[in-house]
Amino acid sequence: MRVVIIGGGILGTAHALAAVGRGHEVVQLEREAEARGATVRNFGLVWVSGRSDAEVEISLRSRRLWEEIGGKVPAVGFRPAGSITLVRTEAELAVAVSAATGPTAAERGFELLDPERVRALNPPLRGKFLAGLHCSTDAAVESRQALPAVRAYLAATGRYTFHAGAEARTVTRGAVTDDHGRRFEADLVIVCPGAAHSGLTRELAGELPVRRVRLQMMQTAPLGEPLTTAIADGDSFRYYPGFAGAQLERLNREESQTFTAARHRMQLLCVQRLHGGLTIGDTHEYEEPFAFDVDEAPYEHLTSVVEELLGRKLPPIVRRWAGVYSQSTDPAAIVTRVRAADDVWVVTGPGGRGMTLGPAIGEDTADLLNL
């Protein structure tokens, strides 16, 4: 088949990978010179630990797919580093104990570690904490270089073409026309618009059951020592469905976040890039219109939390940024797929799970469409 994919982010590229892998010819259009949305403004985490029980299977399957991709395309920077969620209060510890003894703990690779074992696994963690919830199945990729590397791999097959700076303007039966006036014949069109819910997306699919979420993140200069796992703090329990239960309800009831953390709906996630710097975040903002600038208070809070856990000063902050991703409003929906016409599908709304679940979502769409 001739498949045209609109959107150069992780979902679009994952669908291209699935289609080419099944023998089809793919043309992918990206309106920017390079994908610049949530795909590159994230941690690069393949995050199994916090997914709901219903999402464990797809999360682990996607993680295996990332490992396969990393084996074929080393430049994506896949590494099975795992994660440690560090808890600092008794209420957070209770949530961690519940997760480590829950019905899916073995599948997720959960193990509760005392501070000594945490430091043996990840020596830079010399700060203050009561315990660490280790998840051995979590992994990471390099979000800023993964997609160009995958595209180069796809191009080498001879059945894939990427057009940058090409905005799709019309989708008619059997063809897509871009803003250069080029016409691309298509047996199937898959639109992966990310957080661009208006314009062509609305024209094709109407009002989608999705919302946009804004986040703030930052990156440091090289740490000077290897942070062997990703790390999170106990506030992250509040934002992941995999930790739901009586212990989390008690945490939310008995221990409110600091004013800054609560106001910005914050959690700490931190992962070391291959160049040695740390990517640190993040915040959650749901009410539009979003500000065009960034707020300094979250960065100060995140810096203080990381320094408390590391027991040292952070290297200088070299980058700060905001990003926006698309999230399905149905909490049970992993992604929103809408059939806009017989041969046109719109796929968006994985929330903050795009990098984690992208490869599996692409494969599932291919199965759904009998590619």
Score class of each variant (00 low, 15 high):
residue 366 A to T: 02
residue 256 S to E: 10
residue 201 T to P: 02
residue 147 L to A: 08
residue 108 R to P: 01
residue 322 A to F: 05
residue 318 V to P: 01
residue 198 S to K: 13
residue 177 T to I: 11
residue 164 A to D: 11
residue 44 G to N: 07
residue 98 S to L: 03
residue 243 F to D: 03
residue 274 L to E: 15
residue 361 I to S: 01
residue 234 G to P: 02
residue 206 G to W: 13
residue 116 E to F: 05
residue 281 G to H: 04
residue 335 V to E: 06
residue 63 R to A: 14
residue 330 D to T: 03
residue 337 R to D: 06
residue 277 G to R: 04
residue 348 T to D: 03
residue 284 H to N: 14
residue 332 A to G: 08
residue 335 V to H: 04
residue 269 L to S: 10
residue 370 N to H: 12
residue 133 L to V: 11
residue 15 H to G: 01
residue 238 R to T: 00
residue 33 A to E: 15
residue 229 T to V: 15
residue 48 V to K: 00
residue 136 S to E: 11
residue 185 E to H: 05
residue 237 F to M: 08
residue 63 R to G: 06
residue 71 G to R: 15
residue 256 S to M: 06
residue 270 C to M: 12
residue 161 T to L: 12
residue 368 L to E: 13
residue 18 A to F: 07
residue 282 D to P: 08
residue 125 L to Y: 01
residue 54 A to D: 14
residue 31 R to C: 10
residue 14 A to N: 04
residue 104 T to S: 13
residue 181 G to R: 00
residue 69 I to D: 02
residue 98 S to I: 05
residue 142 E to H: 13
residue 343 D to C: 01
residue 185 E to V: 09
residue 308 E to T: 12
residue 350 P to E: 07
residue 179 D to T: 11
residue 337 R to H: 11
residue 30 E to L: 14
residue 338 V to L: 08
residue 54 A to G: 02
residue 169 R to G: 12
residue 199 G to Y: 12
residue 231 I to M: 14
residue 69 I to E: 03
residue 210 V to T: 08
residue 247 Q to G: 03
residue 167 E to K: 08
residue 138 D to N: 12
residue 88 R to V: 14
residue 345 W to I: 01
